[in-house]
Nucleic acid binder design. Structure first.
Lengths: 150, 150
DNA sequence: GCCGACCAACTACAGTTGTCGTAACAAGTG
DNA sequence: CACTTGTTACGACAACTGTAGTTGGTCGGC
């Protein structure tokens, strides 16, 4: 599980664009960056992509010019890392505390929670089915649920 | 609803201590700061408390020496602000996306979710009851569920 | 064969953050 | 009283961040 380097907020924004595009040149990233109003200078985007490349967060294809950049990690991994950090810093690592807060703060309703649960119940059943199928056929299986802290 | 100023991570740690203590002097905060191993220098804590005071995040009682500091905002408010920022930056403001991620990332199990729901269902019923009682008796009421975005 | 459009490499720079060191002062102690 | 101890007020600083200007090379045209 590759460790995700620390990303500043400007860098993270760049990554989000890269995930959206799949990959892109400095100019493409710059054009896609849709934050309200001002587009950052070309060199600003370049600097950021350079820093990201330096810390291994993006890969650069220098065989083509202009260089083509893409994220070195899947979106889910990076976001997962951010969530874990946030959880550790703010909720002492306890995910249920966060969800509880969300509901109490009315960012989420009880109904949202139930809807989510329905979706998840269904998908988890589907996954069990495919896992079982895979197990009996290809014997490939998938990584079982790892041990979660506390 | 007082706007919470932006807090750096070191500043937030100080606030956490202050909430734990209720209030405290530089020395007390410093002693309570329990991060693994190294205690920060006395002046480091002072600088941080000073910066927090400067941005209105903590209140200082200078009538007593050593000065006594305490958070200017309730824990829930500050955390709520942090959560909202995080949600906006990482999940496009969608709380349900975050919870979905949590479950998919196994930080939370379906069972945790159900347990949470049970707790919340019970407390929301209790709140309804008290609200109704308050409404019929003192006419005081409480802020109704505010409009949530989207 | 010079020109403007692109592009990568550097350099720059002010602001922010995390951590301290020093000076100066009040109170307690031998 | 000379010292030690606990405090506040300031100043410092290196690392990190967000943003961008400058330099110098390439390439397709006119």
């Amino acid at each position: 599980m590759a460790r995700i380097p620390h990303l500043t907020s400007a860098e993270f924004e760049i990554l989000k664009v890269l995930w959206r595009l799949g990959q892109g040149t400095v100019a493409e990233v710059r054009a896609t960056q849709q934050r309200g109003g001002a587009v950052p200078a070309y060199t600003t985007v370049m600097t950021l992509l350079g820093r990201l490349a330096a810390k291994g967060a993006v890969l650069v294809d220098r065989s083509r010019e202009p260089f083509v950049y893409r994220s070195a990690h899947r979106r889910e991994s990076v976001i997962g890392s951010r969530v874990r950090d946030f959880l550790r810093d703010v909720f002492d690592g306890k995910a249920d505390s966060l969800v509880l807060h969300l509901v109490e703060d009315e960012a989420l309703t009880l109904e949202d929670l139930r809807a989510l649960e329905r979706v998840l119940t269904k998908s988890s059943r589907a996954e069990e089915a495919t896992t079982a199928a895979a197990a009996t056929s290809t014997r490939r299986g998938r990584r079982a649920a790892g041990g979660r802290a506390k």
